[in-house]
């Protein structure tokens, strides 16, 4: 429940800005949704803060990946609350992309089956 007592290595991370493309995409989406007025910057901060608090409460690893997973969870929740894109629609779309990837031969663009 409590934050780790051992000092975190606050080393300078001069590597790539984003470890994974989806890390950048989740922030880009959140920023674009705020800019377009679908939810506010305060909504975003609150949702991300809540996701972080929940992750800390269940002692999730305090890592970069963990941070972006919280950001994704926050974005999914905000879309469900502030737009017609509910959790069920999100899950179905993810499954559709998953099937599309598995069904697309190497070297071909992955497209959703209609």
């Amino acid at each position: 429940m409590s934050p780790p007592d051992a000092p975190a290595p606050f080393t300078d991370d001069s590597g790539p800005v984003f470890d994974e493309p989806w890390h950048a995409q989740v922030l880009a989406l959140a920023d674009a949704m705020v800019a377009a007025g679908h939810f506010s910057a305060a909504d975003w901060a609150e949702a991300l803060g809540a996701a972080r608090a929940a992750a800390e409460a269940r002692a999730a690893p305090d890592t970069v990946e963990g941070y972006y997973l919280c950001a994704l969870e926050a974005l999914e929740g905000l879309l469900a609350r502030h737009t017609p894109i509910g959790a069920q629609i999100q899950r179905e779309r993810k499954e559709a992309w998953s099937r599309a990837y598995l069904a697309t031969p190497h070297g071909r663009p992955v497209e959703l089956g209609r």
């Binding site: 994974e20 493309p21 989806w22 995409q25 989740v26 989406l29 949704m33 972006y68 997973l69 994704l72 974005l75 999914e76 879309l79 737009t83 894109i85 629609i89 999100q90 779309r93 993810k94 559709a96 992309w97 998953s98 990837y101 959703l112």
Partner: peptide, 15 residues
């Protein structure tokens, strides 16, 4: 792609 990457892709395509 990884599970979170697919979830992001889902959100992106939906919005």
């Amino acid at each position: 792609p990884s599970d979170p990457a697919l979830r992001v892709k889902a959100l992106e395509s939906l919005v």
